[in-house]
Simulated assay, not measured.
Amino acid sequence: MQINPSYNYRDITLNSGVYQAAKEVLCSRCIHPVCADFAALRCHDFTPALKFKPPLRGFDNATFNTFRCGVAWSKRVTPGSLVALVNAKTDEAFGYAKVTAAHVGEKRSMAELHGEFNHSIQALEIKTNIADVMLKRLKNSSGSMIYNNNDKVTVIYLERLTEYLSEDIEIGKEKEDLAT
């Protein structure tokens, strides 16, 4: 499944488990594997895409985390949220995961606390200077400008789903719920 490469999540909010778009429909920015609605402004099942630059490593682990510059992602996902794992080069989904936690903090302290559980750190089997390596990888993946303009990071813990339709995920909540 492929996403629209020009998607943007800036106007999307998550309140009480319902995603809402202020401007354009959510569907054009969603990568939910099964959906019958193509014009929703509010949705329980909206599935944001977490992009990863190749080489794609460390996604075979059952659980891992990803670091994102800034605090925006802490407002987009909560424990239980479904996210698509997307190859940033091809815009193709290569898997799905369930968010188990999201933490926000200063870059250095978050790298020290959570770096060892990062997908690429685990895949590369890095055992020393983990925080320094994590911060270097974050700067390389985010770009210098984004990295330097953000004092904080969001660390998202993910549980890889072997099937994207799982009993752990609620699909297709009643549309009447959204009218309230």
Rank of each mutant, 00 (worst) to 15 (best):
K98W: 07
S142M: 03
L158W: 14
M110A: 04
N149Y: 05
T162E: 11
M134D: 01
N140F: 00
D177W: 12
V104G: 04
L113K: 07
T128G: 09
I169E: 05
L165D: 14
A88T: 15
K127I: 10
E170R: 15
E167L: 12
L161M: 10
I169G: 14
E159D: 05
L113P: 13
I156Y: 04
K173T: 12
Y164K: 11
I171D: 08
E174S: 15
L165Y: 07
E159G: 07
K89E: 11
G95D: 05
F94A: 07
E106F: 02
K175T: 15
E116Y: 11
L158N: 06
E106M: 04
A179S: 08
S166C: 04
L138H: 02
E176H: 09
V99E: 09
L138C: 00
N118P: 04
H119Y: 14
V104R: 05
T162D: 11
T90Y: 12
E116V: 10
K175S: 13
K173I: 06
F94C: 09
E106H: 07
S141Y: 02
M145Y: 06
I146W: 03
T100N: 10
N87M: 10
L135H: 00
S144Y: 12
I130A: 03
A97D: 03
L165I: 08
D168V: 15
V155I: 04
M110I: 07
K139T: 02
R108V: 09
